[in-house]
């Protein structure tokens, strides 16, 4: 039972990180019909920015992280939207998806060739030692990851639901034509979501890299899990992507411990395929007309 609780908590912590990336993926899809296959690399890059800043200028972690956040929002938010998405999306959503695969290849190998092919240790935000709550030991890193991801996602939800800017972003996502007809600057709203995606990816980088280590290909599995999470939960809603992340994190942890360690990914994949076959809008998605 104690094992079970620990597994669930650490699964939730990993799942919350997947959720950060999956929510960004969902936002880009909702406001722009953009499918970004480079999501994993969008997590990898800020990790290396932080690392490079610490190494070059001996900055404290929080300052390096803050700078990385700004850099990420400008480059992976604004520049990505303006230089790549705006140029290619008119050719079709699938063409853009392929282009982002190309972008992922270029980013990964750019870091490998330009920085390092090795795995680098990454400073932890939260201490790794366990704490005991009600007799159960939890990793402080897991708790910290859950809390920070929760704050980021909660803040985003509040922003989307309760500010006029957030409402306009939702409006642009729910009905683009109607939003245009009301004078909402749909393109600007889309740009904001790209910035938010980059910021969420940076938070994910800070949480995941201490245990994954910073490596040029660290985004591969992370990106895939986030995609699976988004599809399983349903990525026409932010909430769907959140639940999807948590489910994937917990499922692979529990399946790995109780069913088969070597096939733990298999259970996630099986769930993915079942969802795609029988509930393509996702477990928590809404089935209202999906734009194709």
């Amino acid at each position: 039972m104690i094992d079970f609780v620990q597994l669930v908590v650490s699964g939730l912590a990993t799942g919350a990180i997947y959720a950060l990336v999956a929510i960004g993926f969902a936002l880009l899809w909702q406001t722009s019909n953009a499918v970004n296959f480079a999501q994993g690399e969008f997590v990898m890059l800020p990790a290396f920015v932080v690392l490079a800043l610490i190494k070059a200028f001996d900055l404290p972690l929080w300052l390096a992280a803050a700078i990385a956040l700004v850099v990420a929002v400008v480059i992976m938010g604004g520049l990505f939207k303006r230089a790549i998405v705006d140029a290619i999306l008119p050719q079709g959503a699938m063409t853009l998806a392929i282009a982002t695969i190309g972008l992922a290849v270029a980013m990964k190998n750019g870091v490998r060739a330009g920085y390092s092919a090795e795995a680098h240790p990454f400073p932890a935000l939260f201490p790794v030692e366990p704490i005991r709550i009600l007799g159960v030991g939890f990793s402080l890193a897991d708790i910290g990851a859950l809390v920070l991801a929760g704050v980021a996602i909660g803040g985003l939800s509040l922003f989307l639901a309760h500010t006029l800017a957030g409402r306009q972003m939702q409006a642009a996502a729910q009905n683009r034509d109607a939003a245009l007809s009301l004078g909402i600057d749909v393109d600007r709203m889309a740009l904001y979501t790209f910035g938010i995606n980059a910021a969420l990816a940076t938070v994910a980088a800070l949480l995941v890299t201490p245990s994954y280590l910073a490596k040029f290909d660290m985004g591969e599995s992370l990106g895939l899990y986030a995609f699976y999470a988004a599809i399983i939960g349903g990525f026409n809603r932010v909430l769907g992507a959140l639940w999807g992340g948590l489910i994937v994190g917990v499922l692979s942890n529990l399946a790995g411990a109780y069913l088969s360690a070597s096939y733990k990914d298999g259970f996630v994949l099986a769930l993915l395929i079942v969802v795609i076959l029988f509930r393509p809008e996702g477990l928590f998605g809404s089935s209202e007309e999906r734009k194709v």
Partner: peptide, 19 residues
Amino acid sequence: DWYLVAFGALVLALMAWCP
């Protein structure tokens, strides 16, 4: 290793100019 960077860039350029 820069070859793959160039390959990725080629994919991007093709998708933008000549899908």
